[in-house]
Design a protein around this nucleic acid. Sequence first.
DNA 1: CCCTTGCTTCGACATCTGTCGATGACCTGT
DNA 2: ACAGGTCATCGACAGATGTCGAAGCAAGGG
Lengths: 119, 119
Amino acid sequence: MSNVKTLPPAEAAEVVPCCPPLTSADLSEADAITMAAMFKALADPVRLRLFSRVASHPDGEACVCDIQDVGVSQPTVSHHLKKLRDAGLLSSERRGTWVYYRVEPGVLAAMAALLADRH
Amino acid sequence: MSNVKTLPPAEAAEVVPCCPPLTSADLSEADAITMAAMFKALADPVRLRLFSRVASHPDGEACVCDIQDVGVSQPTVSHHLKKLRDAGLLSSERRGTWVYYRVEPGVLAAMAALLADRH
DNA sequence: CCCTTGCTTCGACATCTGTCGATGACCTGT
DNA sequence: ACAGGTCATCGACAGATGTCGAAGCAAGGG
């Protein structure tokens, strides 16, 4: 029952264990830098709103034109979406006129695991 | 400062839902600002290492002198600890010569809840 | 008392970051 | 080919952030 060789790779195999949990032991400098980069990606109100709009979109993906009304200019939106892409939180794909963003699966769960309490 | 931190009314130890999960719906601007402040506190390698050292300490608390060797000057350590305090992640208490920091319970779990996947 | 140790605050500085307008690149109708 | 819409990149700028040395508090010991 515990055989996992038939599991599709879209479930648990995508969770990247980048670092040990925050509360388990001293973080190495390298791990701290890696983790800080992930949190930094979400440490901005505009990026948070953009991400939540993509994540909560019905089809799991959203066109930039559907989410870009967050109170800043269009270049700024593009700048923040690039940051979220570089952090591995979002991926983008151009289809015709529009560019669609979707949440990169697993990354959010991996971050949550870093904050999990030790037990 | 004040001593209210040792007097939990009855709501402490509960995970405070500051905002809806990131993936559930569009974030309001106010919620986005609140969440961004929390993530920003952990968006620095030095703060991450300091926090992990406090969190993983045997007694649940750590003297500054025990954790301050993270590669930056001592005033910088104090500066980062203050940021973690202001963000509600740590609390401090002076006992004699030393100042002890401990993890403010619940905040980490609340942040993890924000990252939880919907389903 | 004065001196030492532990930690915080202050002032200054260099770098990073978010923001914008202008421009460029890409695609689609006409 | 051209015009128009969508999105990314560029260059510039103000403000935020991380860092340090110096100085200020607080506690304890001679």
